[in-house]
Nucleic acid binder design. Structure first.
Lengths: 147, 147
DNA sequence: TTAATTGCAAATGGTTTGCATCCCC
DNA sequence: GGGGATGCAAACCATTTGCAATTAA
């Protein structure tokens, strides 16, 4: 969905700062945090305040347009919510995030929750990882062109 | 393990504040945060500073004696680490925490990580829940004595 | 004795908020 | 024109840190 309809749909004014923040958000595939977003946004329009970034993020989260994640205890990181639920691998060596989904894990969670007398509201599975040594070797080989 | 051996084992001085903080920690089954811990500790000795609570918590986490969790985006909460790994249900209605463990989910995680070329360093599965309506009724009935 | 530990207060980092101004609808 | 949105700076909250005084070993 484009930015104009997004604002219309949620009764938000399409202002200059908002247009830019949403555009940057739409282009980001890397779960940026508010400060990183602020950096990207002010590269386009340096007059935008970080308060506006936080306000927009909060607004979009409330409307269900964005998902907010808190990995480890760093700053909150955001991604658009227009996708099926998924979980995250966080590469502890560089902070990179890889998404994954397991229907089987989802199903097991439901089952266990029900057995405990709970209904699931939401959940998060964060797996902190490190590349397997074999992967590291494969990557080195790839980069070096087979050395 | 008692507090004295714990300190000896990790080369920590057994000071008054530490003795009290560890004692309170040992008695807590509810994953308290630092500020809550500070409240409990200063009830016993009002001269203890919150900085000492944070420092002790950090120390014990480093030594692997405590586990630190960040649920949603509230303050960090702690529990002793002298147990098998488990995951958490967080009751969104009151913040209560219930522990659970699924070997099957653990196994699936390993499997999926490996398939992605990762080795797991650690992980966290937090399931935000609400009591099932049937549980709520059962509880009311229990409290009212069968009303 | 003396290095580790503490209390205090100031600093930090991420995030939110009050308020006067601004500018979409 | 008017109310929502913004920029700015100050406030906030959880947490950390510098430093001089204290204390366990």
């Amino acid at each position: 969905m484009d930015i104009i309809s997004l604002c219309k749909e949620h009764g938000l004014r399409l202002t200059g700062p908002r247009r830019i923040i949403m555009q940057v958000l739409a282009e980001s595939r890397d779960h940026p945090d508010a400060v990183e977003l602020f950096r990207r946004v002010t590269k386009i329009d340096p007059s935008i305040a970080i308060a506006t970034v936080y306000r927009t993020l909060h607004l979009l989260e409330e409307k269900g347009v964005l998902e907010k994640h808190t990995f480890a205890d760093g700053p909150a990181r955001f991604e658009s919510a227009d996708h099926q639920h998924h979980d995250h691998f966080i590469n502890v060596e560089n902070g990179d995030i890889v998404e994954f989904r397991s229907d089987e894990i989802e199903r097991l969670q439901e089952e266990i929750a029900r057995a405990h007398g709970f209904a699931i509201v939401s959940h998060r599975l964060d797996i902190y990882v490190r590349p397997l040594e074999s992967e590291r070797i494969a990557k080195r080989r790839g980069k070096a062109g087979g050395g």
